[in-house]
Nucleic acid binder design. Structure first.
Length: 116
DNA sequence: CACATGACTGACT
DNA sequence: AAGTCAGCCATGT
């Protein structure tokens, strides 16, 4: 079953690597990751890659990745709908109504933090 | 091959 | 400020 080509694997690994570089208590959005991959328009592909994070052997803190609105849009893709919010709160991030509080303050931009 | 959907974003009205 | 439309790439029907 070859759902994913090797080239896509490379894309996934790039996304996962960035996500794993997100510091504890910080979050980022799909656009920032896409931009770090030189594909700012492929924000959807980032979400697509995250969908494959479940198959990855290495742990990927996908709960630290949200949309530009700071909303936990991908929580439904977690093992449980509350896993994402719970994981964020565990790191000291306030989450109300599936939205991250002070999202702008805890926002982590890979393009800046990774000195791209 | 064409249409619809999706862990998105930006621009326009 | 809030709502709507279009662009984006890959997958599924």
């Amino acid at each position: 079953m070859t759902s994913i080509s090797e080239k896509h694997q490379d894309f996934f690994q790039a996304v996962f690597e960035i996500v794993r570089h997100i510091p504890e208590g910080r979050v980022t959005n799909y656009g920032a990751i896409a931009k770090a991959l030189s594909t700012p328009s492929s924000s959807r592909m980032v979400g697509w890659a995250m969908n494959a994070s479940h198959s990855q052997k290495n742990p990927v803190p996908a709960h630290r990745v949200v949309n530009r609105n700071g909303m936990l849009t991908g929580k439904m893709h977690f093992p449980t709908p509350t896993a994402m919010q719970h994981a964020l709160e565990k790191e000291g991030i306030e989450v109300i109504e599936d939205k991250i509080v002070r999202f702008k303050e805890i926002f982590w931009d890979p393009n800046v933090e990774l000195s791209l």
